[in-house]
Design a protein around this nucleic acid. Structure first.
Length: 741
DNA sequence: AGAGCGTGAACGCAA
DNA sequence: TTCACGCTCT
C-alpha cells in the first residue's frame, strides 16, 4: 500500500513531498485540457515527469498511450531519464514515448508516409541541401518575375510553418512575384517528392496533411497519444499547433507547459498566441501557475522581472524565490569589444581562482555568433578552457556531409541531392554536365537517380569513359546496399571510407590529418549508435544525424566554460552568467529596432538569458564596437536601463562612460545623429548616388548615402539605414536603388 | 571543343 | 560557403 501523499508505480512509490502545492496540484489534476504556466526555474520538467509517472501509476494509460513532446533532444532525454527513475528501472516497455516534435513526426511519416507518396526511407534534407534544391528549381523554372533565392526559401519555409500548401499559396497570391514564389514552392515540393526527401519543415507539414486527409490514420495516432503532453508550448508554430490539436481532439487529454515570457522563436514561426489563447481554444482548461523559482537569487529574479515587466503581450505572473538575495548584478562597460572580452576573461580567472568556482560553472551569452571571436581570443590569452555551443555543427561539416551522402544514397536511391554530392567527392571525372544527364535520364525513365547512374552507358550524351566510371561506382554501391541490412552502421561507414576513394583523396591534400579527424569521429559516432540497444539500422542512424541540435553539444564534463548565443540558452542554467553586448542595435538587434512585437521578443530573449543565472549575473557592453565591418559608437541597451539601478553594481570602466540614464517613456531609440558617421567627403557622383541621396536596399530598406569612397568596381558607400544603422556597401554588389522624393 | 577541376573572390542573426 | 574564371585533359 502506498502511504498517503504518494503514489505507486509498478515497482516504486514516489513521494509527492518533493513537490510544492502548485506543482502537486498540476501533477494530480484530473484528465482534460491543462495549461501549466511555468515561470523560469519553477520546475516544469519535474512536474511533467511526475505527471507522466502519475498517469501510468494510476493506470489511466499504458506507456504505449502516452506521448510527451519537447523541442530539443536534450530535453527529451532528460525527461525520459526522469520518468524512468520515477517508474522504476530501465525497462523500455515501461517508458512512454518522449520525443521532439521533429523526431515524432519523422517516426509517424516513416510508417504512414506511403499514403502521401513517400517511401519509408525518405531523406531529411538540411537547410543547405534544401537551399541547393530551391536554387536548382529557380534556375530550371526561369520565371519572368523570379524571386531572389533567399526570399523564396524564407517564404516557402514560412508557408510550411503556417500549414499553407503550394495550391493554397497560389490561390491567394497576387499575380507577379507572389505568384512566382508559389510556383517555385510547388516545383520544389514536386522535386522533393521525386527525390523521396523532406526538409525540416516538411516533417511537420506532411504530418499535418496526413492527419487532415486520412482520418483513420489520425485515429490510430490519437490512440497512441491518448495522453499528450507538450513542453515549451509558447514556441509552437501554426502547424505544430494544428498537429497537437488534431492528436488531442479525441481524448481531450492535452497538457501543455510553457511561459509566454520565454517565447523567442517568433522569427521561426512560433506564435505566442498559441499559449495566450489556450483557454479560448480549450474552454474547459484547468490552469496552474508555477511561480516559485528554485534557480536564481532574489536579486537576479528582480532584475529579470524589471525587464520583462515592460512587455505588454503577457499574462501577469509573480515569480518569487526563497533563495537568498545574493550579489548585485555586475555591469561593466569596455572601451571596445576587446576590452569587454578582456574583462570577462579576467573575471572568470578571478572567480575560478580565488572564487572557488570551476570554469564549467560559467557561461557567456551573446546575441550574434560574430561576438564570440573577441571573447574566444581573450579566453585564450588568459588560458581559460572554453568551448562553443552551436555555430558550425559536426554533421554539417563538409567532409562529414560528403561521407553521409554515400550513406543517404544507399538508404534512399532517389536522393539526387546526395547522389550529386557523392559523385563529386572524391573527384572522379563525373561533373555537372554528366550529372545533368543522370538527372535527365532518371526523370525520363521515372527511375531513382541512383539507378540512372548505373545505366549511363545507354545515354549518348556522356563519354563512354565517364559512363563506365559511373557504372563501376553503381555496382559497388548497389552491392553494398544489398548487404547493408546485415551490416552494422560502423561496418557500412568503414566500407564507404575505404572503397569510395574518399580517404585516399583526403591524403593528397595538405590538411589531411585535420580532415581525417572528422572521418574518425564519424566512425565512433557510428559505433556508439550500433552499441545502443534501441538502435536500428542505417535509416535510423541517418535520421538521428539529421535531427541533432546544438544543445546536444553541451558537455559539462570537460570542466570548460561555455560560450553560446542567447537563443541556445533556453532550458539551461549556470551558476555564473555573462551577457555580452548589451547595446542598442545589437541587443535589441537592429532588425527589431522599431517594431514593438519584435522588441518584445528581444526583451524575452534578454529575460531568458538573465534567468539562466543561479548565483552571479554580469551584463557587459562597449563604448564602440565593430559589427558587420563597420565600427561605430555603441549606445547602452534599453534593457539595461530597465533594471533598477539599486540592483546593479558598476565596475569602474577604464575610461569615462555614460552613466545609466533613467528611461523616459517616449524616448526614441534610433536616432540618425550624424555624429556617429565618419566625416563627409565629396565622392565621385555619376551614378546618382551622391551624398544625401535617398536609396533603398533589398535587405536593409531605406537609407541615406553619407559618404562615398573608391571608384569603378571598388566604389563603396556608407549608407545610414532607417533600420539597421550605418553600413559600408560595395556598390557593385549592393543593388541600391535610388529613391525619388 | 567541351567538360572537369582548382583557384580566388564576396558572404554574414538567431535553429 | 557559392560564383566566375582560366587551365588541363580527353
Amino acid at each position: 500500500m502506498a502511504p498517503p501523499g504518494s503514489f505507486e508505480t509498478a515497482t516504486v512509490t514516489v513521494k509527492l513531498d518533493d513537490l510544492n502545492p502548485e506543482q502537486r496540484a498540476a501533477v494530480l489534476a484530473p484528465d482534460g485540457p491543462i495549461l501549466i504556466l511555468a515561470g523560469a526555474g519553477s520546475g516544469k520538467t519535474r512536474v511533467l515527469s511526475y505527471r507522466i509517472a502519475h498517469i501510468l501509476a494510476e493506470r489511466k494509460a499504458s506507456p504505449a498511450e502516452v506521448l510527451a513532446v519537447t523541442f530539443t533532444n536534450k530535453a527529451a532525454n532528460e525527461m525520459r531519464q526522469r520518468v524512468a527513475s520515477l517508474v522504476g528501472g530501465d525497462n523500455d516497455a515501461r517508458i512512454p514515448w518522449v520525443s521532439t516534435f521533429h523526431s515524432a513526426c519523422a517516426r509517424i511519416l516513416r510508417q504512414e508516409g506511403h499514403a502521401l507518396g513517400y517511401d519509408r526511407n525518405f531523406s531529411i534534407l538540411d537547410e543547405g541541401d534544401s537551399l541547393a534544391t530551391i536554387r536548382q528549381v529557380l534556375g530550371d523554372a526561369a520565371l519572368a518575375d523570379s524571386p531572389p533565392l533567399e526570399l523564396a526559401r524564407a517564404r516557402i519555409e514560412q508557408a510550411k510553418n503556417e500549414a499553407v500548401t503550394p495550391d493554397e499559396m497560389l490561390a491567394r497570391a497576387k499575380p507577379g512575384r507572389d505568384a512566382s514564389i508559389a510556383q517555385i514552392y510547388r516545383l520544389y515540393q514536386e522535386r522533393m517528392r521525386a527525390m523521396n526527401a523532406m526538409d525540416f519543415s516538411d516533417l511537420q507539414l506532411q504530418t499535418w496533411l496526413l492527419f487532415e486527409r486520412f482520418p483513420e490514420t489520425l485515429e490510430r495516432w490519437q490512440r497512441r497519444a491518448a495522453h499528450l503532453l507538450v513542453d515549451e508550448y509558447q514556441d509552437t508554430n501554426r502547424v505544430q499547433y494544428l498537429i497537437v490539436r488534431a492528436l488531442a481532439a479525441r481524448s481531450g487529454n492535452l497538457c501543455v507547459v510553457g511561459d509566454e515570457d520565454q517565447s523567442i522563436y517568433g522569427w521561426r514561426g512560433a506564435d505566442i498566441r498559441n499559449i495566450l489563447d489556450f483557454e479560448r481554444d480549450y474552454p474547459a482548461a484547468q490552469i496552474f501557475k508555477l511561480e516559485q523559482n528554485y534557480r536564481s537569487t532574489k536579486t537576479i529574479l528582480a532584475a529579470a522581472g524589471a525587464v520583462i515587466r515592460n512587455n505588454t503581450e503577457r499574462k501577469v505572473k509573480n515569480l518569487w524565490t526563497e533563495n537568498s538575495a545574493g550579489e548585485p548584478v555586475t555591469y561593466f562597460t569596455g572601451r571596445d569589444e576587446r576590452d569587454e572580452a578582456d574583462f570577462i576573461a579576467l573575471e572568470i580567472a578571478r572567480l575560478t581562482g580565488v572564487g572557488g568556482f570551476r570554469a564549467a560553472d560559467v557561461v557567456v551569452f551573446y546575441r550574434v555568433n560574430a561576438q564570440s571571436r573577441a571573447i574566444e581570443e581573450a579566453l585564450v590569452r588568459r588560458r581559460i578552457p572554453y568551448y562553443i555551443v552551436g555555430g558550425v555543427r559536426f554533421y554539417e561539416q563538409r567532409d562529414v556531409k560528403d561521407l553521409l551522402a554515400y550513406l543517404r544514397v544507399i538508404a534512399n536511391p532517389a536522393d539526387a541531392v546526395s547522389l550529386e554530392r557523392m559523385v563529386g567527392t572524391p573527384p572522379r571525372g563525373i561533373g555537372a554536365k554528366s550529372f545533368e544527364a543522370i538527372a535527365e535520364l532518371a526523370a525520363r525513365e521515372r527511375i531513382p537517380a541512383f539507378e540512372a547512374m548505373g545505366r549511363l552507358e545507354t545515354c549518348s550524351r556522356v563519354a563512354l569513359r565517364i559512363a563506365k566510371q559511373a557504372g563501376m561506382l553503381y555496382s559497388w554501391m548497389h552491392d553494398l546496399g544489398a548487404r547493408a541490412p546485415d551490416l552494422s552502421v560502423r561496418g557500412i561507414v568503414e566500407e564507404v571510407v575505404a572503397h569510395s576513394g574518399f580517404e585516399a583523396y583526403l591524403d593528397t591534400l595538405d590538411d589531411a590529418p585535420a580532415r581525417k579527424q572528422n572521418l574518425a569521429e564519424m566512425l565512433s559516432a557510428a559505433s556508439a549508435f550500433d552499441a545502443e540497444k534501441s538502435g536500428g539500422g542505417l535509416p535510423e542512424f541517418l535520421e538521428r544525424v539529421a535531427l541533432v541540435s546544438d544543445t546536444e553539444q553541451i558537455d559539462s564534463s570537460g570542466g570548460r566554460a561555455a560560450l553560446m548565443t542567447l537563443h541556445t540558452s533556453k532550458g539551461l542554467e549556470y551558476p555564473i552568467v555573462f551577457m555580452a553586448g548589451m547595446e542598442e542595435g545589437l541587443f535589441p538587434h537592429s532588425r527589431a529596432a522599431e517594431i514593438d512585437e519584435e522588441v518584445e521578443e528581444e526583451r524575452r530573449l534578454c529575460y531568458v538569458g538573465m534567468t539562466r543565472a543561479q548565483q552571479l549575473l554580469y551584463l557587459t557592453n562597449t563604448l564602440s564596437r565593430e559589427l558587420y565591418g563597420v565600427r561605430q559608437e555603441s549606445r547602452q541597451s534599453r534593457f539595461l536601463r530597465e533594471v533598477d539601478p539599486a540592483l546593479i553594481r558598476r565596475i569602474a570602466p577604464a575610461r569615462e562612460t555614460p552613466p545609466i540614464r533613467p528611461l523616459s517613456p517616449r524616448e526614441p531609440y534610433v536616432d540618425f545623429a550624424d555624429s556617429q558617421l565618419p566625416d563627409d567627403e565629396p565622392g565621385p557622383g555619376g551614378d546618382g548616388l551622391s551624398i544625401g541621396a535617398r536609396v533603398i536596399h533589398p535587405t536593409f530598406g531605406r537609407g541615406i548615402v553619407r559618404r562615398r569612397e573608391g571608384r569603378g568596381d571598388g566604389a563603396k558607400a556608407w549608407v545610414n539605414f532607417e533600420r539597421g544603422g550605418i553600413k559600408l556597401l560595395v556598390l557593385k554588389f549592393a543593388n541600391l536603388r535610388l529613391l525619388g522624393d
